[in-house]
Design a protein around this nucleic acid. Structure first.
Lengths: 211, 211
DNA sequence: GTATCCGGATACTCGTCGGTACGCAACCGC
DNA sequence: GCGGTTGCGTACCGACGAGTATCCGGATAC
């Protein structure tokens, strides 16, 4: 009957609090916006008060950065996993897109939060710089995947991989926005669009020169 | 030397004030966000004070609607102009996109404002409903243009025009976002992307059945 | 076991912002 | 030209939110 140690060291306890706050912040900020959500909103959602917040973060802005980091790290991991597992199969052109559907589409909260972050990034130079840094890294990962796929298919796309990656991002974020704005948006719009788009890319490509 | 009548009737004067406020609101809201911009910010930019604002708008939220209406009306006009002038020429597949580049791309302020409106629309049901109404109408206009172009080319696209229009919108908004987030984004990304995409649409289309 | 430390709660401060009350001066109808 | 009207300026109010000061109680160090 002796329960497993509910005793947590001080550090563990605080780490738990911090994690809880971040989780609540993700949800609350996504729903009410970076400015619309107050610190009290966030801490209340997590079952704490202001004191807990300022024991864990220097300011509201500082926690934005924390959150930004966490969210992007997650996405980067997904992309890198995809980039790495290419050992097994390289098949149809439309396979190119399938993975991105999984990797770049998140849940609704992620879309909302991304939208909020993006808007904030266009206004706050410091935050914008951090945002762009992570954004570029993500795009670099996508570009790498695209290059490998092009090599597998033995084609040279009409634009550099980085630019195709930009286009892929644009579609992902554009669709996410469309889905936020209109619940009637088809669930697989992104997938259909990617297939059409990469169909066009393949058509506009030239054969790779022999080595 | 007698200047032309600087005398304006009361109604004209107020209309001028209102227009000035809306112009300032467009700029200020785009730069600071719907929540970040205060009414004092807006009226100060216009050279007025709070009194002028509340003499012209019932509330901050009400002016959002006013602005929404004005901005979308402008876009709708552009689309309908394009939809109407199709008498002269129907040519290459990539012509399909050229017009949209012009019609759906706005200046940076419009992108920012759209982003703000979109975020607001996902949070405020009433505003969201108004937003969606105008959004749907715009998309309807785009779908109509697409259908005409498909007919000109004698093809049946693999998806209904409405869905292709959604994809076009997604690309337009996605690119706009990309450009806001990263100044290094190629200027004509949207154009290039549209050509690739519609290239893919044409490839995936079937010939139109004879009448 | 006792002194110390510190994560988090509580109770403030101060600035800001949406909205209101009211005053004033220029316009309006007569 | 005179009295009512009204567009806009000014002064204000209540609410709220970020951040701070202080305190408490339980963990930690010795």
């Amino acid at each position: 009957m002796t329960a497993s140690p509910p005793r947590l060291t001080r550090k563990e306890q605080q780490a738990r609090t911090r994690a809880t706050l971040i989780t609540s912040a993700t949800r609350v900020l996504a729903r009410k916006g970076l400015r619309g959500a107050s610190i009290d909103d966030i801490t209340a959602d997590a079952g704490f008060t202001k004191g807990a917040f300022y024991a864990n973060f220097a300011s509201k802005e500082a926690m934005f950065l924390e959150l930004l980091d966490e969210q992007f790290a997650e996405k980067l991991e997904t992309i890198e996993r995809i980039a790495g597992d290419g050992s097994d199969l390289g098949d149809q052109a439309d396979r190119v897109g399938r993975d991105f559907v999984e990797a770049l589409r998140g849940d609704e909260d992620w879309s909302r939060l991304f939208l909020e972050f993006a808007a904030h990034a266009t206004r706050e130079p410091a935050f914008g710089a951090e945002f762009r840094e992570r954004f570029d890294k993500l795009r670099g990962g996508v570009a790498a995947v695209l290059e490998r796929r092009a090599a597998e298919l033995g084609i040279v796309p009409p634009f550099p991989a980085d630019e195709i990656a930009r286009m892929t991002f644009s579609m992902a974020h554009g669709v996410a926005l469309e889905q936020l704005l209109d619940p009637a948006t088809p669930e697989d719009l992104f997938g259909s669009m990617l297939r059409l788009f990469f169909g066009g890319v393949v058509v506009a490509s030239t054969p790779a020169p022999p080595l």
